[in-house]
Amino acid sequence: MARYTGPVCRLCRREGLKLYLKGDKCFTDKCPVAKRNYAPGQHGQSRKKVTEYGLQLREKQKVKRFYGINESQMARYFDIADKMQGITGENLLHLLETRLDNAVYRLGFAQSRPEARQLVTHGHFIVNGHKTDIPSFKITQGDVIQVKEKSRNSEKIKSIIENHNGTQVSWVNVDLEALKGTIVAEPTRDDIDIPVEEHLIVELYSK
């Protein structure tokens, strides 16, 4: 399944909530979800009976769109989570939360996850002293994520740092002067603020 390249605001409207895929725009009156809080398309405003499968599917789609992954990646993460000790749904969210692109977003070095993924892909960050341009790279407690020296004069990076308004979670620590962040703990379910019922995803994949 190819990566979605269409208007991301349609994804928010389809899920009926803000996925925060457009950065600052999501917090303004221009947000399409605030203006048209119904699904896109000709029949978006019609009432439809939602089945049990439909609820499970929507939760899966919601998580995929929050973290910007495709179907095959989602299935692979679920397989890994299912083999881990603990609660499968929480394991799944933990795996997604510890992706490098999400960590960059949580550190406040990007205004959205899509922007974080782009910055990582373009090689603007180093992890533990090594250039890492793979968005799905798994970070762990103790890892240090730093803006690459050559990227510090980038207008994009300067703009992000100037508008930095603190970290969003307690499991990361940021040093703005050094332009680096440290993973100080493993994220728990309480740290993951996306509105999703992960048990429905487990039920879907368990069929």
Rank of each mutant, 00 (worst) to 15 (best):
K60L: 14
A75Y: 02
H130P: 14
K62E: 06
L57N: 14
E97K: 06
V127L: 15
R76H: 00
R152N: 01
L21G: 08
E59F: 14
S136T: 03
C26I: 03
F27H: 05
Q42I: 08
I69K: 07
R47M: 06
L95A: 02
N37C: 00
D101C: 06
T28Q: 08
Y77M: 00
F137S: 11
E149K: 14
I87H: 15
A110V: 02
V33W: 13
F137Y: 15
D133E: 08
N91Q: 07
N102E: 03
G89K: 15
Q146G: 06
K48P: 03
T132W: 10
C26E: 05
E149V: 12
K48G: 01
H43C: 04
K148Q: 10
R58C: 04
V50C: 10
Y38Q: 06
C26G: 07
K148L: 04
H94C: 07
F78K: 03
E97W: 02
G16C: 08
L93G: 05
S136E: 00
E155H: 00
D24E: 11
V120H: 08
E90N: 14
L107M: 13
F66Q: 05
N37A: 02
T132C: 14
G68A: 12
S151T: 03
R47I: 10
F66Y: 11
K48Y: 09
K18A: 11
Q45I: 10
Q73I: 05
N102Y: 07
D143N: 14
G129T: 12
G89V: 15
R106G: 01
K156A: 06
N102S: 04
L17K: 12
R58N: 15
G129C: 12
G123Y: 06
L55D: 13
N128W: 12
S136M: 00
L21I: 12
K131W: 10
I69S: 11
K35T: 02
E97I: 07
I126H: 13
F78Y: 02
G129V: 15
L55K: 15
R47V: 10
I160E: 03
D101K: 00
S136D: 00
D24G: 01
Y105R: 06
Q42S: 09
L92Y: 00
L21V: 07
V63M: 03
E149R: 09
S159Y: 05
L55C: 10
H124L: 02
V63E: 04
F137N: 13
V104P: 04
K156G: 06
K64V: 07
G142E: 09
V33A: 07
K150M: 08
D29R: 14
E97Y: 02
F66W: 12
G41C: 01
K64C: 04
K83I: 04
S72K: 11
T121W: 00
T51L: 01
G123W: 01
G108Y: 05
I134P: 01
E155V: 09
G142L: 05
R99F: 13
Y105H: 07
M84L: 08
G54H: 08
D79G: 07
A116Q: 05
Y67C: 01
H43R: 14
H130A: 14
L19F: 15
Q56Y: 10
L21R: 15
E52D: 15
K131T: 09
Y20I: 06
Y105K: 04
V127H: 15
C26T: 11
K158W: 06
Q118W: 02
E52N: 14
A39F: 09
